[in-house]
């Protein structure tokens, strides 16, 4: 069986000033996603998370361009498709939920109109069937009295409701993959949890696969099966959520986990020192080495290869090693590593 989405060595660059400045936003990203699976993509702002997703739906804002690699969706190669062909994939096969619920609905069109569009264009629903579909969708995202609410306009809804409506729009075309680009960043904390539960429930019902872009590891722990950690346009570590949370191999993953607050813990939160690098002028060697607490001399000169730790778990770090069979050792080791990282951070 082929995977639902298989991204291989994807490269997407922003070329400006006549080629003088090349921002390598995505540089050799590979991952696979099975039907119904949830992948979390985490990383600091500007690490290429959003660009990766825009490349998947072939909607990179100019001057962005896919310069290499392949994106196979359900066995079909997306990078070779024309915009016209992509139109039948967007909304119908791959839907997206954007970050800002206040801005992602058109203020001049009714909720009905906006939710119905994907069903109208991709599933050829009309008249009563279409109305029925919209009502179902609004019901599914828990909009109270949908028959009445669908005649209203975005400004009459709260932020949480709008984001649920964006969710309904994403589902309207019956997609197999939803890309959620930080869907809860602009919501109240109480509503965030509700929204995530709702997404999870909808996923259970429809079997849709989700790519979750976030910088909130709490969301990843709650929602995702797999995790990909991005840094400077590359996936530096990828594996199952359990593997990465228990025994992160890449110092960047460790640092991200160390910067996550834990309930009831008196431990100091660790900030990652320094800033993410400029994607147009990356440092030589490993892009993370200037900020890395465990950097070796090699890190500054040679780029680390992707090391397969075990199974689908991989890390791009000179310190990463294939895992021995006994998994328990690895866990305790990495726990020590985290404390070591903490000491350096202080």
């Amino acid at each position: 069986m082929t995977a639902l989405l298989e991204v291989r060595d994807l490269q997407a660059h922003y070329v400006s000033f006549g080629g003088e400045r090349v921002v390598k936003a995505v540089e050799g990203v590979s991952f696979t996603l099975e039907e119904g699976e949830t992948l979390g993509v985490v990383g600091e702002s500007g690490c290429g998370k959003t660009t990766t997703c825009q490349a998947i739906v072939n909607l990179l804002p100019p001057p962005g361009r896919i310069v290499g690699g392949s994106i196979a969706f359900a066995g079909e190669e997306l990078t070779r498709k024309s915009q016209r062909e992509m139109r039948h994939i967007r909304g119908a096969q791959i839907a997206m939920i954007l970050q800002d619920p206040m801005a992602s609905l058109n203020p001049l069109f009714s909720i009905y109109r906006q939710v119905s569009e994907p069903a109208y264009y991709h599933r050829a629903l009309r008249g009563r069937g279409l109305r029925e579909r919209v009502r179902e969708l609004l019901n599914a995202v828990r909009i109270p009295s949908p028959a009445m609410r669908m005649r209203e306009y975005p400004h009459q809804m709260s932020g949480g409701m709008r984001q649920r409506i964006v969710g309904a729009i994403a589902l309207a075309g019956g997609p197999r993959l939803i890309i959620a680009d930080e869907p809860t960043t602009n919501l109240d904390v109480t509503i965030q949890a509700q929204y995530l539960d709702l997404l999870k429930e909808l996923q259970d019902k429809t079997g849709v696969a989700i790519i979750f872009i976030t910088h909130n590891l709490g969301i990843v722990a709650r929602m995702c099966d797999k995790l990909a950690v991005m840094y400077a346009g590359k996936i530096v570590e990828a594996g199952t959520v359990r593997e990465l949370f228990n025994a992160p191999r890449h110092p960047y993953t460790k640092a991200l986990l160390g910067s996550m607050p834990k309930l009831g813990s008196k431990e100091k939160l660790l900030a990652i020192p320094g800033h993410p690098p400029d994607l147009a002028t990356l440092p030589p060697g490993c892009a993370f080495h200037p900020r890395c607490p465990e950097a070796l001399p090699t890190c500054a000169t040679a780029e680390p290869p992707e090391i397969q730790v075990i199974g689908s778990w991989s890390a791009r770090c000179w310190r990463a090693e294939p895992q021995e069979i006994s998994a328990t050792d690895a866990t305790t080791d990495s726990a020590k590593d985290i404390h070591a990282a903490a000491a350096v951070g202080d």
């Binding site: 909304g91 119908a92 569009e117 264009y121």
Partner: peptide
Amino acid sequence: EYIKLARLKGLPG
């Protein structure tokens, strides 16, 4: 953003 979303819905240009 809403034009971005309109494109993401796969509406004709």
